[in-house]
């Protein structure tokens, strides 16, 4: 237990870094309880923490992911039927390397291989929403209970969303060119340990290059909220007692495009300012699961009716999750 506690405090929450940055800020004659000192501390501490966790996590996770490349996932999914296929798709979505830029080829590749569109949508929902790295970051910023609850509701949303799309029989609303493409079955030659390490290294570089700006902006906004925006304003707009807070957070989040790593510091600052946990999570899920760029891309492969159904289901799901978390926060914090 003691080791676990130490692991949580020092490795996950990085309390040593918190103190170190505090010393640094103090060295410049600033108090971390003051506004300026507090913002600088939040900014430096969160940026360094996220980048350390990001590199270590992505490396480890990419190594695991190299066993679940999309070609393999597709093959595994082909063996399952009904809701089991949706559940498996949602779970594999959490470990399959994914970037919103590849969602369309993936959608087409899965569909061409004969996977039901509902199963593919389960995958498409869970993949950006629940990432292995995000679980550990959530545990670092909040706690393990919240991290696990987040994963569970994310997967449930993906399963329900995909199953609903199956039930609605929307196959005819997929653009015709999506069907009947060649399916490359031959997995590339078996990867060696060195290949996997190389793959993991490349992923670290790739993802860091892709997300660093979002992280800096996210931490910047977080620091601003943390120290400069009066609590009264935030609680008037997004306070726990405001019924519309979750709706507002979701609809502001949806059009935005950012990585989950960039949105976490914002969620962290909001919760510290008294915003409901469900409201902060709804914002985060809105940003990561749906965004204008990904919707525009998806519109090239599916017709408006299916696209609208997909957006509708995910939006309703996120809002429901938001209210659920707000109601049961006392169990998690």
């Amino acid at each position: 237990m003691l080791i676990l506690k130490w692991f949580n405090a020092q490795l996950l929450k990085m309390e040593w870094l918190h103190h170190l940055v505090e010393l640094l800020v103090n060295a410049f004659g600033l108090d971390i309880n003051s506004r300026v000192g507090g913002s600088i501390h939040f900014f430096i501490y969160d940026t360094i923490k996220i980048f350390i966790l990001l590199s270590v996590l992505i490396f480890g996770i990419s190594y695991i992911q190299s066993f679940f490349l999309p070609e393999r996932t597709r093959k595994i999914l082909g063996r399952f039927r009904g809701v089991w296929a949706n559940i498996l798709a949602a779970l594999l979505g959490t470990v399959t390397p994914f970037c919103s830029c590849s969602s369309i080829p993936l959608f087409i590749g899965f569909t061409s291989a004969g996977l039901p569109i509902g199963v593919t949508f389960s995958f498409l929902i869970s993949s950006p929403l629940v990432d292995l790295a995000s679980i550990i970051l959530l545990a670092s910023i909040f706690n393990w209970k919240i991290a696990i609850a987040y994963v569970v509701v994310g997967v449930v949303l993906a399963v329900i969303g995909g199953s609903a799309i199956s039930k609605l029989k929307l196959e005819e609303y997929v653009e015709p060119y999506v069907y009947g493409n060649k399916v490359m079955d031959g997995e590339q030659e078996e990867l060696t340990v060195k290949d996997r390490v190389d793959f993991a290294k490349e992923q670290v570089l790739d993802i860091t290059k892709r997300v660093w700006l979002y992280v800096i902006i996210g931490v910047g906004i977080g620091a601003a909220i943390h120290n400069w925006v009066p609590e009264s304003i935030i609680s008037t707009i997004l306070g726990k007692d405001k019924w519309h807070s979750v709706l507002l957070a979701t609809f502001v989040g949806i059009p935005m495009y950012a990585d989950i790593f960039g949105t976490l510091p914002i969620a962290e600052a909001l919760v510290a300012k008294g915003v409901g946990l469900g409201t902060a999570l709804a914002f985060m899920m809105g940003v990561t699961a749906l965004s204008l760029p990904s919707i525009i891309m998806l519109s090239k492969a599916v017709k408006p009716k299916l696209l609208a159904t997909f957006i509708g289901i995910v939006t309703v799901g996120i809002i429901a999750i938001g209210y659920l978390f707000n109601s049961f926060t006392y169990l998690l914090l």
Partner: peptide, 13 residues
């Protein structure tokens, strides 16, 4: 073009 890319059966570019 996405249509041409997927016609090769490729899911990752």
């Amino acid at each position: 073009d996405m249509r041409d890319i997927v016609s090769y059966g490729v899911m990752r570019t």
